[in-house]
Design a binder for these strands. Structure first.
Length: 487
RNA sequence: GGCGACGUAGCCAAGUGGUAAGGCAGAGGUCUGCAAAACCUUUAUUCAGCGGUUCAAAUCCGCUCGUCGCCUCCA
């Protein structure tokens, strides 16, 4: 089985064949750094981090480029509002972006270029576009002439006439076609600027990605990714610029992730219905957020809600509990040679886990199915453990294989990066922080209950248990004694 | 108005021609003094609706209804 992925350009799943065997160039649109990132940005980051990890796991040598767009109208506006330099704003939000991504457990891309470090590259591409007739200058601005590029709109599959009929574009008399877009903008008072052959100005949106991808990956490369909302105009325009300048295919495979929704509506800055990554990290741990994102296919919409995050945490906890069971069993020597009734099934699940996971991932990165397969193994593991497999030398090879496979899967998904016992303890500690009862009192009541149970005073012991339950304390009786945990 | 996507159990969610994964929640059972956890069993004759193609459709085609997205900055 080899990797197949959905290519926005062809609108179908295609067999993935890299341009150079064994090597992959991948460019993903980062963010415009003018504010904190929200959960929608987190999804895009997590999805492409997962893709990056899986491609590497599959044996490819991947060059992963993700840019910062650090010059743009919004950054300038914000700087003006705060009375500071655009650089101050850009640097501040580059730092918060990095921090958010690190906390979410993202691997750093191979290169993270900034648009303003590539002004020369941008100018060079624009010059070429003017030379070969794809662009024209007007009063210090430079526009791309969409009518000169026959393939324009091939990615978003529209046509110019329909787009114009909708007519929400600004009518600028200086443009040859209303759909022409800016490659270079002449400077206005109070704006940062760079020298160019067309006078002082700054790059338009879109051109920086053509410049940076070309610089680090060449004129033609394998994978370009981003959110669905970038298909038009951003990626469409990148194609026009890059193919117009280089005369060769820009990108072989276009990948686009679906949105995060709130009540079925797209989470977005303009609607104001967003939660920032740091807000959500106050409530949920990073892996819960990753798990939540990866439980859906990357192209599907994903509804964000407190309830859905809680369910994700419950699901992830189930896996971590199984991993803890596995860790405990493997940390001590086996004491029997008995074969558990389900031992054969466990061996089969252990051997099949990784191949089945790969098969799911090879089908357009189907992490939802991959996690389903993992849960399937978890159920079998729990059963055999309940049958005593953990103590038996007969089950060791299967348990070890299962453990190794889980580690590999975790490395691909960016999950299970914490020792199972520590992760569970951390969740437990979070719950305890929310309790309205001090542990001294709990301990006192547990002691009293133990006394009552010894005297067969079950009425009193049940009273204590039920009282603690109203305080979200769950009593757990074991052969070793009584413990408790927060619900 | 143009273009496009989606609609699978109480909720979330896989499944693109061969007879409905998985998670959460729920019910019954094993265990327990009673509980909890874990395990076992169970929860969609059915995939928005209606027609059509086919030996066979959640999967393909058409229509209807509903939701959302892009067309303006947006992951």
């Amino acid at each position: 089985m080899s990797l197949r992925l959905y290519n926005t350009l062809s609108a179908e799943k295609e067999l993935f064949v890299p341009r150079v065997p064994g090597k992959i160039g991948m460019y993903v649109c980062g963010v415009t750094v003018y504010d904190f990132c929200h959960v929608g940005h987190a999804r895009a980051g997590i999805v492409f981090d997962m893709i990056y990890r899986y491609l590497r796991f599959s044996g490819y040598d991947v060059t992963y480029v993700r840019n910062y767009t650090d010059i743009d109208d919004k950054i300038i506006n914000r700087a003006n509002n705060e009375g500071c330099d655009y650089r101050t704003i850009a640097d501040r939000y580059i730092a918060t972006f990095d921090d958010d991504m690190d906390r979410l457990g993202m691997l750093r891309p191979t290169v993270e270029p900034k648009a303003t470090d590539h002004i020369d590259d941008i100018i060079e591409i624009i010059s070429r576009l003017i030379e070969n007739g794809h662009a024209y200058t007007v009063e210090g601005d430079v526009y791309f002439s969409v009518e000169t590029f026959a393939d324009y709109l091939k990615l978003s599959k529209r046509n110019l006439d329909d787009m114009l009929a909708g007519a929400r574009v600004d009518l600028d008399e200086r443009k040859r076609n209303p759909m022409d877009f800016a490659l270079w903008k002449a400077t206005k008072p109070g704006e940062p600027w760079w020298e160019s052959p067309w006078g002082k100005g700054r790059p338009g949106w879109h051109i920086e990605c053509s410049a940076m991808s070309m610089r680090f990956l060449g004129p033609s490369f394998d994978i370009h990714g981003g959110g669905k909302d970038l298909v038009f105009p951003h990626h469409e325009n990148e194609i026009a610029q890059s193919e117009g300048a280089n005369g060769c295919q820009f990108v072989k495979y276009w990948l686009h992730n679906g949105f995060v929704n709130i009540n079925s509506e797209k989470m977005s800055k303009s609607l104001g219905n967003f939660f920032t990554i740091r807000e959500v990290l106050e409530i949920f741990d990073p892996e819960t957020i990753r798990f939540f994102v990866l439980q859906a296919h990357y192209r599907s919409p994903l509804d964000y809600s407190d309830q859905n995050l809680k369910e994700a945490q419950a699901g992830l906890t189930r896996i971590y509990e199984a991993l803890a069971l596995l860790d405990d069993a493997l940390s001590v020597d086996p004491v029997s040679t008995d074969t558990a009734p389900s031992a054969a099934e466990l061996a089969e699940k252990a051997a099949g886990l990784l191949p089945r996971f790969k098969e799911a991932m090879d089908d357009d990165f189907n992490t939802a199915q991959g996690l389903g397969i993992l849960f399937d193994s978890v159920r079998t593991l729990n059963r055999t453990m309940a049958e005593g497999a953990g103590k038996s030398s007969a089950s060791r090879p299967a348990l070890e294989q299962l453990k190794e496979s889980c580690v590999e899967i975790g490395n691909v998904l960016g999950l299970f990066q914490t020792k199972s016992a520590d992760w569970l303890a951390a969740r437990e500690a979070e719950k305890k922080e929310r309790l309205e009862i001090v542990s001294d009192e709990i301990e006192k009541l547990i002691t009293e209950r133990a006394e009552a149970r010894k005297n067969k005073n079950f009425k009193r012991s049940d009273e204590i248990r039920d009282y603690l339950l109203t305080k979200n304390i769950q009593i757990i009786d074991t052969a070793e004694g009584t413990s408790w945990k927060a619900k």
